[in-house]
Design a protein around this nucleic acid. Sequence first.
DNA 1: CTGCGATGTGGACACTGTCAACATACCTCC
DNA 2: GGAGGTATGTTGACAGTGTCCACATCGCAG
Lengths: 197, 197
Amino acid sequence: MRRVTSYHHGNLREALVQAAVGLGREKGPDGIVIREVARRTGVSHNAAYRHFADRDDLLREVAKVGHDELAGTMRSRVKRVRVTDPVERARRRLREVGKAYVEYALAEPGLFAVAFSHVSLGDLSGPYELLGAALDDCVEAGYLPSSKREGAELSCWAGVHGFAMLYSTGPMSDAPRKQRDADLERLLDRIDDGLSG
Amino acid sequence: MRRVTSYHHGNLREALVQAAVGLGREKGPDGIVIREVARRTGVSHNAAYRHFADRDDLLREVAKVGHDELAGTMRSRVKRVRVTDPVERARRRLREVGKAYVEYALAEPGLFAVAFSHVSLGDLSGPYELLGAALDDCVEAGYLPSSKREGAELSCWAGVHGFAMLYSTGPMSDAPRKQRDADLERLLDRIDDGLSG
DNA sequence: CTGCGATGTGGACACTGTCAACATACCTCC
DNA sequence: GGAGGTATGTTGACAGTGTCCACATCGCAG
């Protein structure tokens, strides 16, 4: 049904989201501008209003893509863990969850910013549940005492999210990579220290 | 020299910053709009360009106010600590630094967002040094092992900054106050756990 | 007191989000 | 298979924005 030259596009909605994602990647939330999205899609300004209520609505769709990519990065990093000892495995997986979060924020600062610009917790179910599962594993393996399990998502999330903010688009964004990596390792060490015992 | 009715204002720059700060408080970074700032100051659009290179330049000035208020909140909370035992005092002061950070972000979400929208580390010397001093005290009191001192600013900052982001304008912003407070206490507990030992 | 630099004004331009009116294509029902 | 209704795109308009340029007005140095 690819009637690109016709009056009706056939799949405009998806095409608009793709263009918006591209802009988000390049320039962040403020770069997602309806009229430029339309231009890149080869369609008139205003065409987007047949598919999205307003700009925020489109932004939310772009944010979803960000959430999915973030969750994908987490899953991929967790899957790569090859440790067999249950405790070490659970710890390592949790650490990889955190690394993936920061990795994505640094690789895609624009989309990461969009993903956290107009969002509520419900939209983040993917990443949030991956973190929860990693913490559950830590309890099951006997590493994380269950007395510390409650609210552990938030302590971990806060640490990693703050780091991502500071280093992706925030005040630490021009720190040298070497220092940044060392800082991240130390942060993950402290989180680990905080959970055990 | 208060010649308010005259052609020349006498103190326009400061008046513009005040108006911009007001807008930032009410609506965050995107609410700081040059023409509205001018309107509120009773001056023509464009007058601001005699005092600021462009909008970003004005934003940076507003951000400075945010940094100062943030540092002020921290100082005020730290000063209130009445514990005498050196170790407990140092721990408590560090905790108050964190609480102040979050307290400010929740009390002034708009200005807090401005304060971290277009900033580099150098602009944050005030808050950053207060945190560093609190950590130094922890080392001096023998609570924080000096092997863990390096990069400790960043672990603490990341945790508290992430929490502030998530709960002030982020995805946790509509969490009930009670849960939010409990989450913060747990976060500060984990940070404390992570530093000791 | 005179003239020059600093400060404020008015108008213009290109750009944005959004609304209303119009045009076209697709799809269903007789 | 034609007719009409609905979904989808287009054109044009409006108010609002940041920023540039030319002009007006003021305060102060000589």
